[in-house]
Amino acid sequence: MNEHDALRLVERMRAAFSAQMTNDLTDEVLAYAARRARWIERQTGRSDPGLPRELLDDAIGDTYMGTVTWDPTIVLLSVHLKSVIRSRISTELARGERFPHVSIDGRLENFESEVSEALAQARPGAGPAETQTCVDIVVAALRELAGDDAALERLIDAYADESTERRDVMRATGMTAHEYHNAYRRMLRLVERLSTDVRAAAITAMG
């Protein structure tokens, strides 16, 4: 690609950016960022009220300046921005995994035993489950809530194997579009139930 072609592409991208940048778009993407930030807050126990705005600002700035590539002929700006935010959170979440508050696989045995002791002293009857990470607790609770819903179990298993897009999940599980849609909706309802009690309990367990 020569310089003129590259400039033309940037020009087209910026024109599409300008056309699609609406207040409804910032509402949509900020709502996404705010919800993701809330999960992070519950996971880490640390509140950062400026995080949603920071996530949105970074995604927008990086896109407009071309730091991250956006092809407006393939994907809408709102979808792209959410994807940029998802990618950043995913990176930070993976990084965070190396520094869990408590490990269930013994990598941080000393820390784990310290936390176990602290939990046992603080609350009589505290069991091993409270030494799991917030992530493990939430997922375990989700599986429990799913009960004998086979389709939902298959959906969760597909997520575990990194199939998250609808088509990938359908391919991995053999679900029809209708089955996927219904399982997805049931999963969202369970997540709503998780959000009010189990995640808070997980944070409490994390101390």
Partner: peptide, 9 residues
């Protein structure tokens, strides 16, 4: 579980 957690989040 991290993958599942991220997908549901």
């Amino acid at each position: 579980n991290l993958r599942i957690y991220e997908a549901i989040a």
